[in-house]
């Protein structure tokens, strides 16, 4: 078992401090938005978590391509790690968005393009996990999930475009509040500062989590091969 790299510990501390600072900026530095009130502060971390979700999707698709090209097991571990983290963060982003929407649009849910696409991405992640649990042979599982991650990554932009067109051609706008809620407020400098710092903080946090999850995956793979070996020795 490899010892925990120093760099990883440094990254742990860095991401913790950055997320803490981001929270400080959001709560104490950024002003309260006048039209929506305090709930607008959900926006900063909502976008940041959704960003992490998309980042994970990108990483998973890229890892899929690398796996198919090179056939190295580590790329499969990277892929599943990225999807798992994204699954968690996207779920958080969707719930946070829904909480934000409640007082602003007066409803928990609208079939807004971004919300809908986010939930479809979440379903693709879930399908990815189900696919993995349904295939026992590790090599085959890695190939299939690489392909599925790639397909998901290609189809999502098309889905987003379709839903967006659906909404513009058939406008079901729930009051004019939707325009205000859709990032329609103007960000002043402190808001922008809090916003971009949150994005940066969560990107670092994502990298940190991804590294941890990859280490876990590698350890699991090592245990798996040990298990197979000891099983063969017993025979």
């Amino acid at each position: 078992m490899k010892a925990k790299p120093r760099l990883l510990t440094a990254l742990d501390i860095l991401s913790f401090l950055m997320v803490l600072t981001a929270a400080g900026l959001v709560f104490y530095y950024a002003p309260v938005e006048k039209l929506m009130g305090a709930v607008q502060k959900v926006f900063y971390f909502h976008v940041a978590t959704a960003w992490v979700g998309m980042l994970g999707f990108l990483v998973a698709a890229a890892a899929g391509i690398f796996y198919l090209r090179r056939g190295e097991e580590q790329w499969d571990i990277v892929g599943v790690s990225a999807v798992e983290i994204s699954l968690v963060f996207f779920l958080i982003a969707i719930i946070m968005g829904s909480i934000w929407a409640r007082p602003i649009w007066n409803t928990w849910w609208t079939w807004d393009p971004r919300l809908t696409t986010a939930s479809i991405v979440e379903l693709i992640y879930a399908a990815y996990m189900l696919l993995r649990s349904g295939v026992d042979d590790p090599e085959r599982r890695a190939r299939f999930s690489a392909i599925y991650a790639l397909f998901g990554f290609i189809s999502v932009p098309l889905t987003f475009i379709s839903i967006r067109l659906l909404r513009t051609i058939h406008p079901i706008v729930i009051g004019s509040a939707e325009a205000a809620g859709q990032g329609g407020f103007n960000m002043d400098a402190p808001m922008k500062m809090a916003f971009f710092f949150s994005l940066a903080a969560f990107s670092v946090f994502f990298a940190d989590l991804l590294w941890h999850r990859i280490r876990l995956g590698e350890l699991k793979a090592a245990v798996e091969s040990l298990r197979v070996k000891s099983f063969q020795e017993e025979k």
């Binding site: 305090a38 709930v39 959900v42 007082p103």
Partner: peptide
């Protein structure tokens, strides 16, 4: 005029 949405936050 600012709506009270602290609970949601």
């Amino acid at each position: 005029l600012i709506p009270d949405t602290v609970d949601y936050m």
